[in-house]
């Protein structure tokens, strides 16, 4: 059934060897960097935490662009809309939790 109606896979290019290689190199780099930072002990505490988070976010972006083909989506761009809504809700969850829990440090 899904073959009938869902966007067919035949009519558009799903990336090239070049884009896949670039994506692969980027994602490997973004994995090696945090591992080296933690294992070698170059940075400690807040600095290493920031590195971890930044590389994690960049990794997400690389995955979305090179492997999830976010740029190649045809209109209407449901995937992009869903991603934006997801990011908004993610921000609500993180910021909201931090705000709510700020007053609840009794357990620490």
């Amino acid at each position: 059934m899904q073959h009938d109606m869902s966007p067919s896979h035949a009519d558009k290019n799903h990336g090239s060897l070049k884009s896949y290689t670039i994506g692969f190199v980027f994602s490997i780099l973004l994995t090696i960097i945090p591992i080296t930072v933690v294992m070698s002990g170059w940075l400690a505490g807040k600095a290493s935490a920031i590195i971890l988070m930044v590389t994690a976010v960049l990794q997400l972006v690389v995955q979305l662009i090179f492997f999830m083909h976010l740029r190649e989506e045809k209109k209407p761009r449901y995937n992009l809309l869903t991603l934006i809504l997801g990011l908004i809700i993610l921000l609500v969850i993180v910021i909201g939790s931090m705000w709510i829990m700020m007053y609840n440090m009794v357990a620490l």
Binding site: S97, M101, N104, M105, A107, L108
Partner: peptide
């Protein structure tokens, strides 16, 4: 270092 209130916060989300 845990906090049971965090569970309540998360589960109601």
């Amino acid at each position: 270092g845990g906090n049971p209130m965090m569970y309540i916060n998360l589960i109601w989300m």
